[in-house]
Design a protein around this nucleic acid. Structure first.
Lengths: 336, 336
DNA sequence: AATTCTATCCGAAACGTTTTGGATACTTTT
DNA sequence: AAAAGTATCCAAAACGTTTCGGATAGAATT
C-alpha cells in the first residue's frame, strides 16, 4: 500500500503535524528536524495524497477545458491542437492539471456548466467552440466559477476572454484586397451562431467604408465554417455576382472550399478571382497557389487563456485579452 | 457553501448513513425513505463531493492521457485530434474523466510514469507518441498501473496496446504498386525510434518477397515522419536511384514532402513517379493529385484504447487490439 | 528567584463521504 | 410464551491530509 504521512511520522519519531509542517515549509519546525523528515520521505518514496489534500484545502489544482462538439464527426476544430498545446504550456509552471470536458448541446446527458465543473471540482475552466445559442452561454454570464472564453466575448466579475482582434484582422485583409485594386469584394462569412462572424463582418464593412466603396449586403453570404460551406457559397456568390473579383472568407476551410468550387467552375485562382482566408491553418501553405490569409496565433491564444484563468483563480479581475494576428501574403490574391 | 450529505440528513430527519445508502442504492433502506431522501437531495441541488468520495473509495473515475512532445513546436501529431475524440467517446458511457499529461523526455521536470499517475490518482492511462528510446518505455513494461499504448507494442499483465496492422497495411500498399506494374519501389520510412517504422518495413519487404522482387536495402531511407523528412529523402532517393518509379511512405506528411520535392525536381506525380502514403490525414485528399494512401481509423484507435483501458481497470486481461485499415486509392499512383 | 517570552514540538478536529458493525422493533417460528 | 429471524435504521471509524489551539522546555527580562 502507498506510503502515507503517518508512516513518515513513525519513521521520524515525530507527529503527523510535524511531518506536514516540515514538508510544507512552515517556519515552526527546526532545520534539523525538517531535513531529517525530508530525507526519510525521499527514502520511503512518499508523495502526498492529492485526494486527501484536496478534501482539506478544497482545491484540486485542476482546471477544465470545455470543448463543444469535439466528438461530432466533421466538426470544425482546425486549430484545436495548437490551442491545447498552448493551454498546457500556460499551465505548466503553476503545475495545474487539465481535464478535458467534451459537451454537445444536443446530447441528452449534458449537464449544466456549474454542475460539470463542480462535479469534478475543477478550480476554473477554459471554454472553446461554443455557439452563441448554446445554453451554457447564458449560464456562464452569471457563473461564479473562474472562466476564460476563447473567441466568445463575455466579461464579468469571474469571466474573461481571449481572442484575436477579429475586426482589425478582417479590416486588414479586406484593405489588402482593396489595395490590390479590387472593388467588388465578396465575403463568405461564418454562420451567425458565432461571435467572430459578426466581428469579421464589421471589419470587412469598415474597410469598404474607409475606401468609399459601398457595402453591398448581397455580396455577403453566411454559411458553416467548412469546406462545404465555402464551396456552396462560392458557387452562389459568383453565379449571382460575376462582377466580383475577390472573395474574403471567415475561415481557411471555407477558402479552400472556394478553391475547389472555382476549379469546378473552370476559374483560376488568382487569375480569375482572388481568394483570401482566415486562420492560417496548415493547409493554407500547402495548397496551390498558397493561400493568402490572416494568421491567428492559436498557440498563444491557448497559452494566454491558461495564464489568464490562473490569474482569475487567484483573484485578479477578468479582462479581454487580444492576441496579435498577421496578414500572411502568399499567392492566392493578385493585383488587378 | 455547497450542500453536503449532512444537510440532506438534517432535512430528511435521518442519519448520514441512511442518506448515503439511499442515494447509492443499498437495499436496506425502505422505499419510502429512499424516495423522500432523493426528493430532498434534488430540491437542495445536492451533488456528492467527488474528492471526499475518492478519499474513501480510493477511486477517482479519472484516467490520464500521456502525450509526448505535444507542446514541442513542429512535433508530429497529425491525427491526435481524432484519437482524442475517440478516447472521449470511449470513456463517455462509463463517465470517466480524462486528464491530459504532456511529457517531454528532455524536459528537466519530467517525472516518472508511476509518479505522474500516482500524483494525480488516475486509475489508468493511455500513452501516445512515445519514442522507443523514451525512458517511460522500460518503466511501463513493469508498471502495475492499467495502461494502454497506442502504436507501441507492449503487452504485460497490466499493459495492452492498440494499433493498425502496420505489417499488413504496408504489405497491401506495396502490393498495390506492384500490381500497377512497378518493380523498382522505394520506401521512405520513419525514424527508427518508432515501432511502426519496423512494422511497415516488414510489410514492404514481405510484398516484394511475395512477388519475387529482390529487396534492396539502398531503396529504403529512414527519416523523420515530417514533410522535411520526406522532401530530403525523396531527393536523395531519386538522385541515387533514377530507376525507381514509385515510392511508398511511412506517413502522409512524408509523402507530401516528396510531392514538393518532385515538383522542385521538375517531376510530375504520377506521370514520372508514383507516390503512396500512410495515415490518410485530411491533407491527403486535398492535394493535387489526391494521395493514394493507407487510411488508419484514428477515431476508432482512440475509442478502442479507451474501452480497453476501462476493461483492464476492471481486471480483464490486456491484449493487442488491431484496428482495421483501408487502402484509399486516389490519383498519385499510376500503372506503368 | 520569579515572571514573561519564544522556539519547537503535538493532539485532535475537520474536510465529506463510505462502510462496518450494531440497535431495535416487529414478524415468524417453535 | 419464548426464541429466532429480518427489515430498517444509526454511531462511529476510516480515508490522508491540513491546521487550530495548545504544551513544554529553555531563554530572556524584571
Amino acid at each position: 500500500m502507498a506510503v502515507t504521512i503517518k508512516d513518515i511520522a513513525k519513521y521520524a519519531g515525530v507527529s503527523v503535524t510535524t511531518v506536514s509542517r516540515a514538508l510544507n515549509g512552515y517556519p515552526d519546525v527546526s532545520e534539523e528536524t525538517r531535513e531529517r523528515i525530508k530525507k526519510i520521505a525521499e527514502q520511503l518514496n512518499y508523495t502526498p495524497n492529492s485526494i486527501a489534500r484536496g478534501l482539506v484545502t478544497n482545491k484540486t489544482h485542476t482546471v477544465g477545458l470545455v470543448v463543444s462538439e469535439l466528438i461530432k464527426p466533421g466538426a470544425y476544430h482546425p486549430f484545436f491542437l495548437e490551442v491545447l498545446a498552448g493551454i498546457k504550456a500556460g499551465l505548466r509552471k503553476d503545475k495545474y492539471d487539465l481535464i478535458l470536458f467534451t459537451v454537445d448541446p444536443e446530447s441528452q446527458d449534458v449537464t449544466s456548466y456549474e454542475k460539470l465543473c463542480n462535479d469534478r471540482k475543477v478550480e476554473g475552466a477554459i471554454v472553446e467552440g461554443l455557439k452563441l445559442s448554446d445554453p451554457y452561454i447564458e449560464e456562464i454570464k452569471k457563473t461564479q466559477i473562474p472562466t476564460v472564453m476563447i473567441d466568445i466575448p463575455i466579461l464579468t466579475d469571474k469571466v474573461g476572454y481571449v481572442s484575436s482582434d477579429n475586426v482589425q484582422a478582417a479590416f486588414e485583409a479586406t484593405s489588402y484586397l482593396i489595395k490590390l485594386g479590387h472593388r467588388n469584394i465578396g465575403f463568405i462569412n461564418g454562420h451567425n451562431d458565432a461571435a467572430v462572424s459578426f466581428e469579421r463582418l464589421e471589419g470587412y464593412k469598415k474597410a469598404l467604408e474607409k475606401n468609399n466603396i459601398p457595402y453591398k449586403e448581397e455580396y455577403v453570404v453566411f454559411d458553416d465554417f467548412t469546406q462545404e460551406g465555402g464551396y456552396n457559397s462560392f458557387k452562389t456568390l459568383v453565379f449571382e455576382h460575376p462582377e466580383i473579383t475577390a472573395v474574403f472568407h471567415a475561415s481557411d476551410l471555407m477558402a479552400i472550399g472556394s478553391f475547389k468550387a472555382a476549379k469546378d467552375l473552370g476559374m483560376k485562382v488568382p487569375d480569375d478571382i482572388s481568394i483570401v482566408g482566415f486562420d492560417d491553418i496548415e493547409l493554407a501553405s500547402l495548397i496551390t497557389p498558397g493561400l493568402t490569409t490572416v494568421r491567428q496565433d492559436t498557440f498563444k491564444m491557448g497559452y494566454n487563456a491558461a495564464k489568464h484563468l490562473l490569474s482569475i483563480i487567484k483573484g485578479e479581475k477578468p479582462q479581454h485579452i487580444l492576441i496579435p494576428h498577421k496578414l500572411v501574403i502568399r499567392d492566392s490574391a493578385r493585383k488587378i
